[in-house]
Nucleic acid binder design. Structure first.
Length: 400
RNA sequence: GGGGGCGUGGUCUAGCGGCCUAGGACACCGGCCUUUCACGCCGGGGAUCGCGGGUUCGAAUCCCGUCGCCCCUACCA
């Protein structure tokens, strides 16, 4: 995140407490709304931080004072204030990821730090903030590296030591373009809505541009705090790979206790979900939103998917379905084991392949060819509902 | 144009002069498991480490050059 959270966070890591400025990526001034969005995202990710005061763009007196303190490093130009960059020499920026980066001053023009209308420009605002808030670390996107000498120059002119910088490699989308709020990054919100778990997102993000050793892939938040080091962050931009995130999310999902998973599903879907449905879907979903696709048929009848119907309901399938119906009418007990015994009995007596009985039943109750385990699904649906849906399917088979 | 940054399989990475005939993960392909789809397990293809020189007994790792991509060069952030 970058520009302008314009506030600081207290981050606690193994290295102790340091004051960090986090900037978000869009090149627009932060509004209270998008600051709130960012904070909301940080809360969702369950990062450990304390919010500091926000920067005040409208601190005209303070900015005037700062400009004053820069003496003849600044001058007026047609109402605006410019910073005077020496013609010779160079300035070094200390960056924990890139090392020491030197910029020849001859390449820098005198730059405007305050507009003629009195408003501060970004470079001035952050330099003053860094000084006033005692910022020790600035962690932001690589696209700001070239801006750093200007900020360091101002800090120097104000008689202050520049903070430690860490310029993170930028993230790109699969399209190769920079990932921005509208693509994936605002994404923290979008990722949440798409059914990703915060712990999986944190784990995946940590691995984008960083690796601990040659084989470790999974990290708890605690391990990350302990092991993550800005010094080890890679220097080159990374492509955000949602497939890998999906995979990782699935791994985290399957580790979740069933009631925890259900609570998260209910929070996301905004409705109650049957514990049994969660249990039988857990091993098949990769994201929370997959659950609904997988299990909505357990909550209410779904229409038949035409493709699935044509693929399964042919070559005597209705007859096998009828046989299954009969067996299920008397299956006892009506749980996964009982249902399995009944349906396997049908398979045996008809002398067909298991799938030839199971698939028609699956389509009958779920409308599709993809669902959780068939015995569990039938058991969760209950005898009455299962029979009713089979009857519906049989009627369709007769008429269609 | 000037300045800065970056360059390991399709993707994310490990690697910091010999343990690299370049390791792991996602994706892909094949097999096993199997009631579908997944999961899981096993196996496979795929990288002359952007390119060219140099240093060295030895380089992905050090140096130089070169090419490509990105950033800054705004009274944007």
């Amino acid at each position: 995140m970058r520009t302008a959270l314009y506030n600081w966070l207290l981050a606690r890591g193994s290295g102790g407490t340091f004051v960090l400025r986090i900037e978000d990526t869009d090149r627009e001034r932060s509004t209270p709304e998008n600051i709130e969005q960012i904070l909301d995202a940080l809360r969702w990710l369950e990062l450990d931080w304390d919010e500091g005061p926000f920067s005040q763009w409208e601190r005209r007196e303070r900015h005037a004072e700062a400009i004053e303190s820069m003496g003849d490093h600044v001058y007026e130009d047609d109402g605006a204030i410019r910073f005077r960059v020496p013609d010779e020499g160079d300035i070094a920026v200390r960056d924990v990821i890139r090392g020491e980066v030197r910029f020849p001053l001859s390449a820098l023009n005198d730059f405007v730090i305050r507009r003629s209308d009195g408003s501060p420009l970004y470079n001035l605002a952050v330099a003053v903030d860094d000084l006033d808030m005692g910022i020790t670390h600035v962690v932001r996107g690589d696209d700001h590296l070239s801006n750093t000498p200007r900020q360091a120059l101002m800090l120097q002119a104000m008689g202050a030591e520049p903070p430690v910088y860490a310029h993170l490699p930028l993230l790109h989308g699969p399209d190769g373009k920079k990932l921005s709020k509208r693509h994936g990054a605002a994404s923290v919100q979008e990722l949440r809505a798409a059914g990703y778990l915060p712990e999986a997102v944190v784990n995946y993000l940590a691995l984008l541009g960083w690796g601990y050793d040659e084989s470790t892939t999974f990290f708890t938040a605690g391990e990350l705090v302990e092991r993550f080091a800005l010094e080890r962050v890679s220097k080159n931009p990374a492509v955000f790979d949602e497939q890998k995130l999906r995979w990782m999310n699935g791994r985290y999902l399957r580790e979740l206790p069933a009631d925890d998973l259900r609570a998260r599903l209910e929070a996301l879907l905004g409705r109650e979900v049957p514990p049994a449905a969660v249990e039988i879907s857990q091993e098949k979903m990769q994201t929370l939103t997959d659950f609904w696709d997988l299990s909505k048929f357990l909550v209410e009848p779904q229409g038949f998917d035409e493709k699935a119907w044509r693929k399964v309901m042919r070559d005597g399938a209705p007859e096998r379905l009828r046989a299954a119906r009969v067996a299920l009418e008397t299956a006892e007990p009506f749980d996964a084991e009982g249902v399995e015994a009944a349906l396997r009995g049908v398979v045996e007596s008809l002398d067909v392949k298991p799938g030839e009985v199971f698939q028609p039943v699956r389509v009958a109750i779920s409308g599709t060819t993809v669902s959780p385990g068939i015995f569990e699904s039938v058991a969760v649906l209950g005898r009455e509902e299962t029979i009713a849906r089979i009857d519906t399917a049989l009627r369709k088979a007769d008429t269609g």
